[in-house]
Computed example of a mutant assay.
Amino acid sequence: MIRKLLFASALLVAAPLAQAASCSAVLEGNDAMKFNLTDIPVDKSCTTFTLTLKHTGKLGRSVMGHNVVVTKSADLQAVNADGMKAGLANEYVKPGDARVIAASKVIGGGETTTLAIPVAKLKAAPGPYSFFCSFPGHATLMKGTLTLK
């Protein structure tokens, strides 16, 4: 009987932990121009979603740099084209681009950066949403969907 009570108590304690929203994710990019994730779920209950980008490769920022840009899927191509024109000095993101929901800096091999995505911005602009690397030529392979759930 005591054993059953202890088991039931353990389930009650663990249940709230299992229900907690995950408001963060880790995205890895490598020298082969690939992200480890193609879909990132974002819980609607989060205020801010934190995305950590890890460059698992060895090549430098100016040769094989990676960043993460979040935008509506319909805007991906135009935001990417404008970002390439903006250059590395602007992290391959057009300064003041209102179509960009969030963007990280460009990092090189072995580096990590964190990006805060305001979930209210996702709720305000109906999706679908995409994330991609705006380093020239990378968006073709390094992209995925951000899904508000």
Rank of each mutant, 00 (worst) to 15 (best):
I2N: 09
R3Y: 04
R3K: 09
R3L: 11
R3W: 06
K4Y: 10
K4R: 13
L6W: 08
F7D: 02
A8D: 02
S9C: 13
L11V: 08
L11Y: 08
L12E: 04
A14P: 03
A14L: 15
P16F: 09
P16D: 04
P16I: 03
L17R: 03
A18W: 13
A20S: 11
A21K: 04
A21Y: 06
A21Q: 13
C23Y: 00
S24N: 12
A25F: 06
V26L: 14
V26N: 06
E28T: 14
N30P: 01
D31G: 03
D31E: 07
K34A: 11
N36Y: 01
L37E: 02
T38S: 11
D39W: 00
P41N: 11
V42R: 00
V42I: 14
D43S: 14
S45T: 15
T48Y: 07
F49D: 04
F49T: 09
T50L: 12
T50M: 10
T50Q: 12
T50C: 02
L51Q: 02
T52Q: 12
L53P: 01
K54S: 07
K54P: 02
T56H: 02
T56Y: 05
T56K: 13
G57C: 06
K58H: 06
K58Y: 02
L59P: 00
R61T: 10
R61W: 03
V63E: 11
M64F: 02
G65S: 01
G65Y: 00
H66I: 06
N67M: 12
V68C: 06
V70A: 05
K72W: 01
D75C: 04
D75E: 13
A78Q: 15
V79S: 00
V79D: 00
V79M: 04
N80F: 10
A81T: 10
D82E: 15
D82W: 03
K85V: 14
A86W: 01
L88Y: 10
A89R: 13
A89S: 14
N90Y: 07
N90V: 07
E91L: 08
E91Q: 15
E91K: 08
Y92E: 08
V93Q: 01
K94L: 12
K94N: 06
P95R: 07
P95S: 11
P95K: 11
G96L: 06
G96M: 08
R99Q: 12
R99W: 09
I101F: 06
I101L: 15
A102C: 13
A103V: 05
K105V: 15
K105M: 09
V106T: 15
V106M: 07
I107E: 04
G108P: 07
G108H: 06
G108L: 05
E111Q: 15
T112K: 14
T113M: 07
T114Q: 14
T114I: 06
L115Q: 00
I117G: 00
I117L: 15
I117M: 05
P118V: 05
K121T: 13
K121H: 13
L122G: 08
A125E: 14
A125K: 14
P126S: 09
P126Y: 10
P126W: 09
G127D: 09
G127S: 08
Y129V: 10
Y129W: 14
S130R: 03
C133Q: 09
C133N: 04
C133H: 10
S134H: 09
F135I: 00
F135N: 01
P136A: 03
H138G: 05
T140W: 01
L141K: 13
L141S: 15
K143W: 01
K143G: 03
T145V: 05
L146Q: 05
T147A: 13
T147F: 00
K149I: 05
K149E: 12
K149V: 14
